[in-house]
Amino acid sequence: MAKEIRTIGVMTSGGDAPGMNAAIRAVARACAYYNVKCIGFYRGYQGMIEGDYCEMNARSVRNIISRGGTILKSARSQEFRDVEGRKKAANNLKKIGVDAMILIGGDGTFRGGEIFSKEYDIPVIGVPGTIDNDIAGTNFTIGYDTALNTVIDAIDKIRDTASSHDRLFFVEVMGRDAGFIALNTGVGAGAEEILIPEEDLGLDRLLESLKRSKRSGKSSSIVVVSEGDKIGKNVYELADYISENLPDYEAKVTVLGHMQRGGSPTCFDRTLASRFCVKAVELLLDGQQNVMVGIINNKITATSFEEGLKEGYGINKELLRISDILST
């Protein structure tokens, strides 16, 4: 028989993502709606270990839906990886009276939560919040859409300079070992080439593609590079290689970096976060645990951590085909 849930804890962990504040707001207000106490833990698992928390209600989360980052802050806790660290966290939850936890983060957050829940029989629900979109069990993660729009805006500006000076720009985007951001923004920004870890384009093919672009009359080009791509040791060495072999191009590099994780979330991410977290609260109250919420074909779903932590959805091959056609 599932235990009664009177108090729900919430935290954000791992890399921050736009929409995390909207998620925190939704947890607090859903708890208020269902007459459940809500406790927010600062700095993820580390806050649980140190007992660093605050009580949250419907009014304490006002005016945060539009803010980037996370008011609960985020961290990666090395201490939580150890048995003693998790024991401290469990003792603190018991002392405070927290019956269940909602974890907003990525795969590392979910793995830690799954272990913790099994060790101490604490119901846990995962909410996928990461710009990388690299979690199975959901078509979209919180923050991904905002990151795409941030990258598109940046590339549009870079293209103005590339066109004005007849330059080749390599634009590196985030995504760890997943090329979702690079592929979608590459198509959306009209990039001449897109380099992602899932597809090994190879230096020879890249050179030939850029030569073909030059012969067709293009005086400037944009190449979007996922940070996990292995075609070169790094994007700077890749640019140097192209400059040496294609002296007609003046190659420049722009690494967008952490700007992709900041900024006000898009309407899509605010709505997604709201839908996810109302569902997360309702799942806990319904006696479910050790699952993550997701969205499949616009329907909110619940997937076991085991399934959710498998390799994420594969790259859309159709987008690769479209990219090849449109870069002609």
Rank of each mutant, 00 (worst) to 15 (best):
K95Q: 14
G47H: 11
S60T: 15
M174L: 14
G262S: 13
A100F: 05
S226M: 04
K233T: 12
S163M: 04
N133K: 00
C277Y: 03
N92G: 09
R86Y: 06
E282K: 14
N149T: 10
S221C: 13
A147G: 05
Y42L: 12
K118C: 07
I115Q: 15
K310T: 13
K3Q: 14
L272S: 07
T7L: 01
A154I: 13
I49W: 04
A191S: 15
K118V: 07
N133M: 00
K87F: 04
F305W: 06
N234S: 08
G40S: 12
R67S: 13
L195E: 06
K252L: 13
M48L: 15
S163N: 14
T271P: 00
E311Y: 12
V173S: 09
P128T: 05
A28Y: 02
D200V: 08
P18Y: 02
K211D: 08
R6C: 08
Y34V: 03
V173L: 04
Y241G: 11
D160I: 06
I152V: 15
N133A: 03
L72F: 10
G126K: 01
A22Q: 01
G106T: 05
I322E: 11
K299M: 11
S226I: 08
S219F: 07
V127N: 01
E208C: 09
I8Q: 05
T161W: 06
A178D: 10
I142V: 15
L320P: 05
I142W: 00
G129W: 03
K88W: 04
S60I: 10
L203V: 11
L207N: 06
